[in-house]
Simulated scan of single mutants.
Amino acid sequence: MTISLGYQIPNFSYPGGVEALFDTVVAQARDAEASGFDTVLVMDHFYQLPGLGTPDQPMLEAYSTLAALAASTSSIQLSALVTGNTYRNPTLLAKTVSTLDVISHGRAILGLGAGWFEMEHEQLGFDFDTFTERFEKLDEALQIIHPMLRDERPEFTGRWYRAHGAMNVPRYRESVPIMLGGQGERKTFRLAARYADHMNIICALPDLPRKIEVLRQRCEEIDRDPATLKTSYLTSVGLVETPAEADELLAGVPEDRRAGVFVGTADVIADRIANEVLGAGLDGVIVNAPRNGHVPGVVSTLGAALAPLVG
């Protein structure tokens, strides 16, 4: 498994309303598959996120969507970026992602994070807990999920979770890859070094070189070869043809997030990603296009420009 070029779908507010909604998602996934992306990812949220829209805007449940996309595509990998650990019992999550792997014939990736969107937790009845407790939960969950995805039957009793000889059958592959997402140098990176196959770094662009170096240090602290932990960066892109279109698109982006959005023609976006993201020492990049990714031709154009960077 490797994520060299991923396409994330974070937005489901499309022309045509709910009747056209999933068809528009499928069209993006198929265009991504055909144009050189190796992975399609969706967010694991129940409400739309601040900065992308209002909470009452459409948001599909992640694993139902991924299962349907597995039946609508043939080769592209499928993942959540990232699953909120607080939303599911770890044994259920292991079973869910293993089922996705069977349905997709070995194309599932478990993307996982500690969870952070407090409004969802409060309104939907999930325990939010403290920052420290959420990471305690993530650590415990990984101690159950990691072996369950590798044909082992974990015996574990922790503060938050327990499993007693938990079975996970059927499985399509010997193991399903695990990707953690985040930027925490003390907690997330240590868990990634211990359990993950891939680390998706989500941070301000100027911080990226330091984050990569700290992640390497976390691997070395436990005698893991840093090269065995693959890395990628999540960024938003805005495909436009003119400066006026760029200004119009950026006007809808909160000011504190504009530095992390690559806006321009496909060639401009590709040059910036090559220099500022891949040039920092990462193995791959995951892009989303929340403002116009649903427009026919946008995903294909991005794939044609970006795929040669990682090919």
Rank of each mutant, 00 (worst) to 15 (best):
residue 4 S to I: 02
residue 7 Y to N: 09
residue 13 S to M: 07
residue 13 S to K: 14
residue 14 Y to E: 02
residue 18 V to R: 09
residue 18 V to T: 13
residue 18 V to E: 13
residue 20 A to T: 13
residue 21 L to W: 08
residue 26 V to P: 11
residue 27 A to D: 05
residue 30 R to E: 07
residue 31 D to A: 15
residue 31 D to W: 08
residue 40 V to K: 02
residue 41 L to R: 01
residue 43 M to A: 09
residue 44 D to M: 10
residue 48 Q to L: 10
residue 49 L to V: 06
residue 50 P to T: 01
residue 52 L to S: 01
residue 55 P to I: 01
residue 64 S to E: 09
residue 64 S to V: 11
residue 67 A to Y: 04
residue 68 A to V: 08
residue 74 S to I: 03
residue 75 S to R: 15
residue 75 S to H: 15
residue 75 S to C: 06
residue 76 I to P: 01
residue 78 L to P: 12
residue 79 S to H: 05
residue 79 S to M: 12
residue 79 S to K: 08
residue 79 S to R: 04
residue 80 A to K: 02
residue 80 A to S: 14
residue 82 V to C: 13
residue 83 T to L: 04
residue 86 T to C: 09
residue 89 N to Y: 13
residue 94 A to C: 13
residue 97 V to D: 04
residue 97 V to M: 08
residue 98 S to K: 05
residue 98 S to F: 03
residue 98 S to I: 06
residue 99 T to L: 11
residue 99 T to F: 06
residue 107 R to F: 11
residue 108 A to V: 05
residue 108 A to Q: 07
residue 108 A to Y: 08
residue 108 A to D: 10
residue 110 L to M: 12
residue 112 L to S: 11
residue 115 G to D: 10
residue 116 W to A: 10
residue 117 F to G: 02
residue 119 M to R: 15
residue 123 Q to E: 10
residue 124 L to S: 05
residue 125 G to Q: 10
residue 126 F to P: 14
residue 128 F to Y: 15
residue 129 D to T: 12
residue 133 E to H: 09
residue 134 R to G: 03
residue 136 E to S: 12
residue 136 E to T: 13
residue 137 K to G: 09
residue 143 Q to T: 11
residue 145 I to C: 05
residue 146 H to K: 12
residue 148 M to T: 13
residue 148 M to A: 08
residue 149 L to N: 01
residue 149 L to S: 08
residue 151 D to K: 12
residue 152 E to D: 11
residue 153 R to C: 04
residue 155 E to V: 00
residue 157 T to C: 07
residue 158 G to M: 04
residue 158 G to D: 10
residue 160 W to G: 10
residue 163 A to M: 05
residue 165 G to L: 02
residue 165 G to R: 02
residue 166 A to Y: 12
residue 168 N to P: 05
residue 171 R to M: 15
residue 176 V to P: 00
residue 178 I to E: 09
residue 179 M to H: 06
residue 180 L to M: 13
residue 181 G to I: 01
residue 183 Q to Y: 09
residue 184 G to H: 07
residue 184 G to A: 07
residue 184 G to W: 03
residue 185 E to N: 06
residue 187 K to L: 15
residue 189 F to D: 04
residue 190 R to L: 05
residue 191 L to E: 00
residue 193 A to Q: 10
residue 194 R to G: 00
residue 198 H to E: 10
residue 199 M to T: 07
residue 202 I to L: 08
residue 211 K to Y: 02
residue 213 E to K: 14
residue 213 E to I: 08
residue 217 Q to E: 15
residue 218 R to A: 13
residue 220 E to Q: 14
residue 221 E to G: 05
residue 226 P to C: 02
residue 227 A to M: 04
residue 227 A to N: 09
residue 229 L to E: 06
residue 232 S to F: 04
residue 233 Y to R: 01
residue 235 T to D: 00
residue 237 V to R: 09
residue 242 T to Q: 05
residue 249 L to P: 12
residue 250 L to F: 00
residue 252 G to D: 10
residue 255 E to L: 09
residue 256 D to A: 12
residue 256 D to S: 13
residue 256 D to W: 13
residue 258 R to A: 06
residue 260 G to V: 05
residue 262 F to G: 00
residue 264 G to L: 02
residue 268 V to H: 06
residue 271 D to I: 02
residue 271 D to P: 00
residue 272 R to S: 08
residue 274 A to C: 03
residue 275 N to V: 07
residue 282 L to S: 11
residue 285 V to Q: 02
residue 291 R to M: 14
residue 300 S to V: 04
residue 301 T to L: 02
residue 303 G to I: 04
residue 304 A to M: 03
residue 304 A to Y: 03
residue 306 L to M: 05
